[in-house]
Amino acid sequence: MDKPTLDSGAVYDICTATARPSGVCKALQGLKEIVVKAAAAYEVAAAQQAQHTLSHLKHQPDGEPAAKPAEAAKVAKAAKAAKGSLNEQLKKTYVNRMVGGAGRAVYDKLRGSCHGLCALCGHGAADTLDHQMPKDSFPLLSVVPVNLVPACSRCNHQKREQAPTYAGDQTLHPYFDGDVHDHLWLFARITGPPKPSVIFYVDPPADMPPTFAARARHHFAALDLSGLYNSQIGNELRSLGMSLAKHPLLPAELRGHLQETAEIKAAVEGRNSWKAALYRGLVDSTWYVDGGWEEPWK
Rank of each mutant, 00 (worst) to 15 (best):
D177W: 02
A66R: 10
R111H: 05
A76C: 10
T171P: 01
P145C: 01
A82F: 10
L90C: 03
A163T: 14
P134V: 05
T53C: 11
V99W: 01
A105T: 07
D136Q: 13
Q158L: 15
C155V: 04
L110D: 04
K68P: 02
Q48E: 14
K83N: 12
A73F: 09
L57D: 06
L141N: 03
C155N: 04
G116E: 13
C152Y: 07
V143P: 00
H123A: 11
G84T: 04
R97W: 12
K58V: 03
H131K: 07
V95I: 09
K109H: 10
D127W: 00
C155K: 02
Q132M: 14
Y42G: 08
M133P: 00
D169N: 15
H131M: 05
G101D: 07
K135S: 01
G112T: 08
T93M: 06
D130P: 08
S142N: 06
G168A: 13
P65H: 01
H59C: 03
A125C: 04
L120A: 12
Q51Y: 04
C114P: 00
G116W: 12
F176V: 08
H123V: 15
K135H: 01
A73G: 05
S153E: 13
D127E: 08
K74G: 10
R160F: 15
Q132P: 01
H59S: 06
F138H: 05
C121I: 06
T93Q: 04
R154T: 12
D127T: 06
P164N: 03
A119W: 08
L90D: 00
A119C: 05
L120P: 03
L141C: 01
S55P: 02
V95R: 05
R160H: 14
A50K: 02
A167Y: 01
L117Q: 09
A41G: 00
M98I: 13
Y166K: 10
L57G: 00
H131G: 03
R111F: 08
C121W: 01
Y166G: 11
P174D: 13
K92S: 09
A79G: 15
H56Q: 12
P174M: 15
L129M: 07
P139G: 12
A79F: 04
A46P: 05
S85C: 13
K109Q: 15
A66F: 00
E161A: 15
S142C: 02
D169L: 09
S55A: 14
A39H: 08
P61V: 08
G124H: 05
G101E: 10
L140R: 05
K68F: 02
P139L: 07
L117I: 01
A102R: 08
Q49R: 11
P150Y: 07
Y94Q: 09
C152V: 13
H131T: 02
R104I: 14
P134E: 11
A70I: 10
N147F: 00
V99F: 07
L140H: 00
Y175F: 13
Q60Y: 03
A167N: 04
A67M: 05
D108S: 09
D62W: 08
L90G: 04
H131C: 11
M133S: 08
G103T: 07
D179K: 02
S85D: 09
A79P: 03
S113L: 04
